[in-house]
Design a protein around this nucleic acid. Structure first.
Lengths: 343, 343
DNA sequence: CAATTTTTGAGGAACGTACCTCAAAAAACA
DNA sequence: TGTTTTTTGAGGTACGTTCCTCAAAAATTG
């Protein structure tokens, strides 16, 4: 009734421990026939390798690197601190974590950095970046060197990344639209703001949002996206214009970073109280705004979960073990003032 | 730079391995002085015990028992299957799980069962039950025998349970009210249905709900709770009465189990489409209803997380190790048609 | 001071796995 | 057939910890 060990399968298969070991670790010099015998014993006894004992024996250390956008974005900061937290508390066993920050909009810098990474051969890399041809190449090279690669937050679907860890942004946009539509019984226009529509996340969110608004809330009109490009002054002007010229504005959807400045502008316009505002990601700013009823809801992904998931998935890829999907699925969370997780 | 081991602290403290071991495992026969020396070395080197190696050495096996209400409740069924799933996939290491089902409303049966448990001395028990004096006693006895005890889903605050794993139900009620208020711009009455107000969860949810409705949505009136007591016929009559006699009914809040029958009744009354319905827990029924736009939103807790958390927390208690709160906090999740996790 | 008790050290075996070496057995070749 | 090559077995050491024994050293007692 106790869990079978390598000794048990050796006995059961009628071979020596050394042979079992050779088969289990795919070492050469074993006849097909014997391999089959061992594998049969493994399945018959339901043997599962004790990875902790194995890692103990081979002194395994997983070296993982998180590549994150540098700069003052509150969301990225949250991720960085989650990585730090994961690094000190040893929730995930035998991993050493490094964080590297790269200029968000300089694909060459990212590539250079990934090249450097290549030389130190980490076991796994989690990358949060926009997809460009250069990045595709760099990831391909990492993979060739046997490094596990996962895309974080933003998927890199046309690369050889092993996995994507984040939410379905089309569904997130649809969720925002559904909330917006249900909160606003009246007719009117919706302002949509993001940092840049060149980012895949914003595109997908917009897609999902429009889809639901168009098909279910005919009274509402989603205005063209306003892109801030991190330029507050310029953005302020545009938004002030929109607010002034559109008396029928009833909602605002902030799809990307920069909800703080946006709220400032709206506050100054004096219209904030009459608008239903939805934003992404729970940050100190959006948290405050929720508490003040300035934002109706925030759509978020649990950043701690994101990071822990990355680590577990990277490790699973390294050991090529199965991923426990149910545990790793990142949820699209809807946060209202009353179900806000504490900081 | 590599992680210190017992050997390192032995060397650093100038004592033998045996002494270090005695100190670390609180075995007797060591002078205060030497204990201090070892502890100093531990903190200086930042030693953390490798629990996997330790468990390997002492062949530790954690035997945990889940005590769950028997019967056809969809929510309890979901938990049971989550436990089963956790038991087969060895996400949490070295634990063997057993599930015991007890009649939900027979405190004596639960107590008898817990007594029996006592004799086999499991390492930890997770209990989902209502608090009664008998249960208080039974839990006290378990604790006395050194068993770790956590309350699942429903807290047992006046017992000696080590921990509660579930959501804050007052906050859940408040969240429901906030959603209801925002979805309903009109005035009207809200029907509130639950299985039994004797359950602490329902009481707390109602409390939170009323609180927010009263203070923020003066146009809305929450009607007295209708208790179904698992008696569909009787409940159908009451609800039909309410629906017929209250033309101003605009919303329904299903606080506990039995959303399926409730929806049937409302469907038959022909009023379902005009009502904003909120319910708890994502089950096949509520999932269907969300897809059909019959339910506006579901408030849920991630059952898989609940179970995995229980296991991790029970283990942490057994080893008296710290609990990583950020990972274990159960979220109050708001699920709309568009952000529904797949089954 | 010796006798007793307490504390400490040295060493080994074990947990389940990995990985190494060397020799023996079996299979394939000539 | 003998020779070469491939496959297998036996045994050991290690990982970091626990837990055991036995003897030696130190502290405490009379």
């Amino acid at each position: 009734m106790t869990k079978p060990t390598v000794h048990d399968i050796a006995k059961h298969a009628g071979v020596s421990l050394a042979t079992v070991d050779r088969v289990l670790n795919a070492r050469p010099g074993v006849r097909q026939n014997t391999i089959a015998k061992v594998q049969k014993a493994v399945t018959q006894l339901g043997y599962v390798r004790d990875t902790y004992a194995a890692n103990l024996s081979r002194r395994r250390q997983y070296r993982f690197v998180f590549v994150l956008p540098e700069g003052p974005s509150q969301f990225a900061t949250t991720i960085k601190s989650a990585v730090r937290e994961a690094a000190v508390s040893h929730i995930v066993d035998r991993v050493s974590l490094t964080t590297l920050e790269v200029p968000a909009h300089d694909p060459h810098a990212i590539v250079r950095l990934l090249q450097n990474l290549n030389t130190q051969k980490p076991d796994g890399v989690a990358i949060m970046a926009q997809e460009t041809p250069q990045i595709r190449d760099a990831i391909a090279r990492l993979k060739q060197d046997g490094t596990a690669v996962v895309a974080l937050v933003s998927d890199l679907p046309n690369t050889s990344r092993d996995n994507f860890i984040g939410i379905d942004n089309i569904a997130a946009g649809r969720t925002a639209a559904l909330l917006m539509g249900r909160f606003l019984s009246s007719q009117g226009e919706i302002l949509i703001v993001t940092n840049s529509m060149r980012s895949r996340d914003s595109l997908e969110r917009r897609l999902g949002f429009d889809n639901v608004i168009a098909s279910e809330f005919s009274g509402l009109t989603a205005l063209p996206s306003v892109e801030s490009f991190d330029d507050h002054r310029r953005t302020a002007n545009i938004i002030e214009d929109v607010v002034a010229s559109r008396p029928n504005l009833v909602g605002v959807y902030s799809m990307g970073f920069g909800t703080g400045p946006l709220l400032d502008i709206l506050r100054q316009s004096g219209r904030l109280r009459d608008l239903t505002v939805l934003a992404h990601e729970l940050t100190p700013t959006t948290r405050q705004a929720l508490l003040r009823n300035e934002i109706a809801a925030v759509i978020m992904q649990d950043v701690g979960h994101l990071v822990r998931s990355s680590m577990r998935i990277l490790r699973a890829i390294c050991d090529d073990q199965p991923i426990f999907e149910a545990q790793e699925r990142i949820r699209i969370e809807v946060v209202l003032r009353e179900n806000m997780p504490d900081a």
